[in-house]
């Protein structure tokens, strides 16, 4: 066991080092690298949220792209219609996503398993089709952020002067750091939540609903909270994504490939229902993307095949496989049993 402990410490050390290095990337790395890693970090945020939903709460939604799109459109509405700083738009994006999630939850929670999945997809389509009618934000063809929006964003001028870079590089750096903070924050929040009493309840529901109920866990309430909070996290991420992309269309904001297929494959390959899973998944995803980027659709086929193989042969993903083999628990969700009063 000490060896396992040692290895766990090693991996944690590497993790910490990696996080520190990620923080300095905009200072020492190229702009292309910053943009690449921004994409990776935002996908990680989406995957962490989806993993909480599908892997831990048993809410298999295939319509989370709705909240990415809602966040993106809310941010654009804030900038174009209300003329406020896009950074406020990020918060508004999360808030609107969470508000819309309330009626969505009320509707979908009455449906069981498979019906729930299909209903989330239908609702995502409804949100997309409705927003495509919004003429002030470009309707079906979409619209761009007004010129100079990202340049005038809070903090960009200061970063520009401090780092001595162009204003577009400064705004890239700012969105990158926000994505990094969002990813770390989501991970930390998920960890704290899953280790809390409520989180234990959630995992108890996943393992055995009847037994969980019998000791007083209220599944619907807990699941509803997870649904609302992950919607907010997904909306915030969507808004942030489109500040960097600077152009929104219904197809891009509700992209089935980017915000659904990639997110699901990342989580599945890394390990659905394990906390470090999405991190492993996003690393594998990034490597695959770099090696197969020139082959276009082949890339999606390979991702799909790996996803299927993982589900067939190791359905707790690469992380699950690794943890089972080595006994390493990077972010342990189990508690030590309470010290019994009778033992002494």
């Amino acid at each position: 066991m000490p060896e396992t402990l040692f290895r766990t410490m090693m991996i944690r050390g590497f993790g910490l080092l990696a996080v520190l290095m990620l923080f300095v990337v905009p200072v020492i790395g190229s702009r292309a690298m910053v943009q690449d890693l921004f994409g990776v970090l935002t996908l990680l945020v989406l995957a962490l949220n989806w993993n909480l939903l599908a892997g831990f709460a048993g809410l298999v939604s295939v319509g989370q792209q709705a909240f990415v799109g809602l966040g993106a459109y809310t941010m654009f509405a804030c900038v174009i219609l209300l003329d406020v700083d896009p950074l406020w738009g990020i918060l508004a994006g999360g808030a609107v996503a969470m508000i819309v999630a309330v009626p969505v939850a009320i509707f979908t929670f009455r449906l069981s398993g498979a019906y729930f999945a299909i209903a989330t997809w239908v609702l995502a389509e409804i949100v997309r089709l409705v927003l495509a009618q919004w003429k002030a934000l470009g309707g079906g063809t979409g619209t761009s952020l007004p010129k100079g929006t990202t340049k005038d964003m809070w903090g960009v001028q200061w970063l520009k002067d401090t780092l001595d870079v162009s204003s577009s590089a400064a705004s890239d750096a700012l969105t990158y750091w926000l994505a990094l903070v969002l990813a770390l924050g989501t991970l930390a929040a998920a960890y704290v939540f899953l280790r809390s009493k409520a989180g234990l309840g959630l995992q108890a529901i996943r393992d055995n609903v009847g037994a969980a109920r019998s000791v007083g866990v209220d599944p619907t309430r807990l699941k509803a909270w997870i649904f609302l909070l992950t919607a907010a996290g997904t909306g915030v991420c969507g808004a942030l994504l489109f500040i960097q992309i600077t152009r929104v269309t219904p197809e891009a904001a509700f992209s089935v490939v980017d915000w659904k297929a990639f997110v699901i494959f990342i989580t599945v390959i890394g390990g659905v229902g394990t906390l470090p899973g999405p991190i492993v998944g996003v690393i594998v995803f990034y490597i695959l993307q770099r090696t197969l980027a020139d082959y276009g659709t082949i890339y999606l086929i390979v991702l799909g095949l790996i996803g299927i193989a993982v589900m067939l042969f190791a359905h707790r993903g690469l992380w699950g496989l690794f943890a089972d083999k080595t006994g390493i628990e990077l972010l342990p969700l189990r508690h030590l049993p309470p010290r019994s009063a009778h033992s002494s």
């Binding site: 297929a261 799909g304 359905h315």
Partner: peptide
């Protein structure tokens, strides 16, 4: 558990669609 079949068929969907495209 409805998750594994759902994810496998989702993977199949992506594979078939892009295979046909190719």
């Amino acid at each position: 558990d409805i998750l594994p079949p759902l994810l496998v068929t989702f993977g199949l969907s992506v594979v078939i669609q892009n295979g046909l495209l190719e």
